[in-house]
Design a protein around this nucleic acid. Structure first.
Length: 471
RNA sequence: GUCCCCUUCGUCUAGUGGCCUAGGACGUCGGCCUCUCACGCCGAAAACACGGGUUCGAGUCCCGUAGGGGGCACCA
């Protein structure tokens, strides 16, 4: 059975690049009917916090990436890691090294000067423990293979070969007895039964070091798949100003999780010309081998476009709930049952006009705002003598309407325009200004209908009676 | 410095030797629709990094160059 995993280190939030890695692992596991596991790489105690771990859980949940079983804490497994290091020591595949940090720094400097890769030279590899200096806690290093080379068949990168002269005797266990990342990943992946390691490109060369551990332990090496990293819009490494934010930041910017998922999926993976891909469809189609080899740049415009699509497709009740959540923070908004009702009724027209939930909420304010309205500059301009004349005329016509339906409202406004030989815009714009306080809104019949007779007439009356100040 | 990886429109990509006069999407520009704004629809400009091979034929295979990215920690 296929087993994949996502192994983030909890350093604040679920990074957007990490989210993509998680998504790919999730998709591959689900595609194969296998398992998707979550492991928190919290061995760095300085940087790991409970809040950060909670942020990862929350981010995964928001994206709909559920994992099988309980999340595993790498820190909790430190005894097991030490045990493996001990085994390696006993089998003669590892040894104690008493080098000081200064000594190692010198070594690196000298190597670079000679044009060699800056590797540990293995000076304690064959030395007898009796030569150990007093008072120095040793580290345990792996006795890596010196000759030959290792070739892997990466599911994404293809055949990659690295000579063993590029791999030194890396530290497995620190002098304080804690495991290094290299040891921990290998032990954990093995113990968790991971069959496919799908991770960022930045681990490609590390893989060859890790394979040394697998070999020394006599363990099976999982399939490897190294996906290209995400870059900023300038092609450089993704940084904060490029959008290297936590997924919750995207949620707060008004993105829908399905939009982010779809966008992340198409970044480095494709299925012919398909652009809009549902979770179900993605699960069916996803193959690791189809992931591209080149790094992709993060493009906010495309994400935004996708988000607009998913908003339009989204259920009105769900959108209303999201909008209510944002509107709750607005002081001039009172979220009465009446307002919620209007929001829901107006949502079909509203959602065509928004690319994110923030914008949607802003546009939705016309249905939740309390009378009397305030008018923006352009609206005021429309409500001049002529405009107010139209408002007054329409107010009385609408007041006489026997039924308040979109059809009767439209008929009333259209005939008014025809009778006066006016372009319809001459009627609609002043009405819009009086009803919404702005010059932009959904279709005017929809606004009138959703607002209802009483509220509509009251708002029109407000406009007629408003104090125009110095004007 | 050294090793590894990458390179098709501005961006994400299709493309696995002839179906490519290089396709789609976002963005941009123009138009249509229209009560505003959107949505939708139609159309346009826009790319095989460069140089050598291999082949009847190369975006597709090989080599080199350039550019970009990553690794080389008692970080993960």
């Amino acid at each position: 059975m296929v087993v994949t995993r996502f192994a983030p280190s909890p350093t604040g939030f679920l990074h957007i690049g990490g989210a993509r890695t998680a998504l790919f692992n999730w998709l591959y596991a689900r595609h194969c009917g296998g398992k998707f596991l979550l492991r928190i790489e919290d061995t760095d105690r300085q940087r790991s916090t409970d809040e950060a771990v909670a942020a990862i859980y929350a981010g995964m949940k928001w994206l709909g990436l559920d994992w099988d079983g309980d999340a595993i804490s790498q820190f909790d497994r430190k005894e097991r890691h030490a045990e493996v290091a001990q085994q390696l020591l006993e089998s003669g595949n590892a040894y104690h090294c008493y080098c000081t940090p200064e000594e190692l720094a010198e070594m690196r400097e000298a190597a670079v000067k000679e044009g060699c890769p800056s590797l540990y030279d293995g000076r304690w590899r064959e030395r007898d423990p009796s030569e150990a200096p007093a008072g120095v806690d040793p580290v345990i290093r792996l006795k890596a293979q010196k000759d030959g080379e290792t070739k892997i068949n990466d599911l994404i990168q293809g055949e990659v070969t690295v000579g063993h002269d590029q791999i030194d005797d890396m530290v497995l266990l620190r002098s304080d007895g804690t495991p290094t990342y290299m040891l921990a990943v290998v032990v954990d992946d093995h113990d968790m039964g991971v069959t496919h390691v799908i991770r960022g490109d930045d681990h490609l060369t590390n893989t060859f070091r890790q394979i040394q551990i697998y070999k020394a332990m006599g363990w099976d090496i999982p399939e490897m798949a190294h996906m290209p990293l995400l870059h900023g819009d300038d092609g450089k490494k993704l940084s904060k100003r490029h959008g290297a934010l936590g997924v919750e930041a995207y949620r707060d910017m008004g993105f829908l999780p399905e939009a982010l998922n779809n966008y992340l999926l198409r970044l480095g993976w494709s299925h012919g010309d398909e652009e809009i891909i549902s979770r179900e469809q993605a699960t069916e189609w996803f193959e690791v081998a189809d992931v591209g080899r080149g790094a992709a740049r993060f493009d906010m415009d495309k994400l935004t476009n996708l988000n607009g699509h998913y908003i339009r497709e989204c259920d009105n009740a769900r959108l209303t709930a999201l909008v209510m959540e944002y509107l709750r923070a607005e002081p001039e908004i009172v979220l009465s049952d009446e307002a919620e009702h209007r929001l829901l009724n107006g949502m079909t027209e509203l959602k065509d006009r928004a690319k994110n939930i923030l914008e949607l909420s802003d546009n939705a304010k016309i249905y939740a705002i309390e009378r009397p309205l305030s008018f923006d500059q352009k609206a005021l301009k429309l409500l001049d003598e002529t405009g107010l004349g139209v408002v007054e005329m329409m107010r009385s016509r609408l007041a006489d309407l026997p039924d308040w339906t979109k059809e009767t409202i439209e008929e009333s406004a259209r005939s008014a325009a025809a009778e006066r030989d006016l372009g319809f815009g001459k009627i609609a714009q002043p009405l819009r200004a009086a009803l919404c306080g702005t010059t932009v809104s959904p279709g005017i019949f929809d606004v009138l209908y959703v607002l209802g007779r009483d509220e509509s007439l009251a708002r029109l009356q407000d406009a007629l009676e408003m104090d125009r100040g110095s004007e």
